[in-house]
């Protein structure tokens, strides 16, 4: 169902951006795992002894002042204190990487490449050469999908490998299952955004329309994810979040990448992956039928 010559063309035209993206994310990942991991922030334990001394000192003064009262005076809810103390900064950093920083470059890659594979070639007119050959339109579009999906999978296989190795170097140990699930999460998220970008690319004959829909939605998802971060438990607990910002988490497909559920190994992340895979499948399959039937100004 694919054409090898065309696949070769698509690889030739897009491998540079793929490589730059993979390298960019890979470098970020290695820095986080090796340099940040070695700094040992993971073991943030409460110093019970010192804490006890503080408690004792304040109690002994007989003034009725407490540690909790001190924080309250600073405007920090004392119930957050314990959460703040036990918070795993490593987890927060990795969470930020997997669902935000590490997604940005792949998002740009799928938006740009999705557009280049179809709409841009129709807009410029170079698609005329592909369709002047005896390859069915369906085969053309399936080949382009195979390139896009294949290149994303390839990217995440490499990132997974880098993640495992660099976590081992940085921390001396690695939970391979969790790393695998986190990378599958990134892969599935990017696939769903790639599906949307590719759908836009197959739908429109003008590159700017394709980018407006595909790129626009991707940027919207990314921005709402950032806004939603300020409504996340971690940020609210740390005192620079607002619970109400949580609403943004319901506006972005990236929220379906449930890192908390993966860490706890609860089942929630599985059906959320399922939805993202469903979005990708529907988007890619409808792209095939739309492109097969539409008028092309070539």
């Amino acid at each position: 169902m694919i054409n090898r010559s065309l696949l070769k063309q698509s690889i030739k035209a897009n491998w540079v951006l793929w490589l730059v993206t993979t390298l960019g994310v890979g470098i970020m990942l290695v820095i986080i795992n090796v340099i940040v991991g070695k700094s040992g922030i993971g073991s943030s334990e409460i110093d019970q002894l010192t804490l006890a001394q503080y408690y004792a000192a304040l109690d002994m003064s007989g003034s009725g002042l407490t540690v909790a009262g001190l924080f309250q005076a600073f405007g920090i809810d004392p119930s957050r204190l314990e959460q703040l103390g036990t918070m795993d900064l490593n987890l927060a950093i990795h969470d930020m990487f997997y669902t935000m920083a590490g997604l940005l470059l792949p998002i740009l890659y799928v938006v740009v490449t999705g557009n280049k594979l179809v709409a841009n070639q129709v807009d410029r007119g170079s698609m005329a050469y592909i369709l002047s050959s005896p390859i069915k339109r369906k085969k053309v579009i399936v080949t382009q999908i195979v390139y896009l999906v294949g290149s994303i999978i390839g990217m995440y296989v490499i990132l997974f490998g880098l993640d495992v190795v660099s976590q081992y170097i940085g921390y001396g140990e690695v939970d391979v299952l969790e790393v695998l699930l986190m990378n599958i999460g990134g892969l599935v998220t990017i696939l769903s955004i790639a599906g949307i970008a590719f759908f836009a690319s197959s739908l429109f004959n003008l590159s700017r329309h394709s980018l407006a829909l595909g790129g626009g939605l991707a940027v919207f998802f990314f921005l709402t994810k950032i806004m939603g971060l300020f409504g996340s438990d971690n940020f609210v607990n740390m005192g620079f979040g607002v619970k109400e910002m949580r609403v943004f988490n319901f506006m972005t497909i990236i929220s379906l990448f449930d890192t908390a559920s993966i860490s706890e190994l609860s089942v929630n992340f599985i059906w959320k992956f399922g939805i993202m895979i469903g979005v990708a499948a529907v988007a890619f399959i409808s792209s095939i039928f739309i492109f097969d039937k539409k008028d092309l100004p070539l």
């Binding site: 035209a13 410029r124 007119g125 170079s126 005329a128 050959s133 005896p134 390859i135 069915k136 070539l298």
Partner: peptide
């Protein structure tokens, strides 16, 4: 697609693949 085996084409607007 079947017809492209017997048809050659010069498009009105020339833009080549990369």
């Amino acid at each position: 697609s079947e017809l492209k085996k017997v048809v050659g084409y010069i498009p009105g607007e020339i833009a080549f693949p990369d």
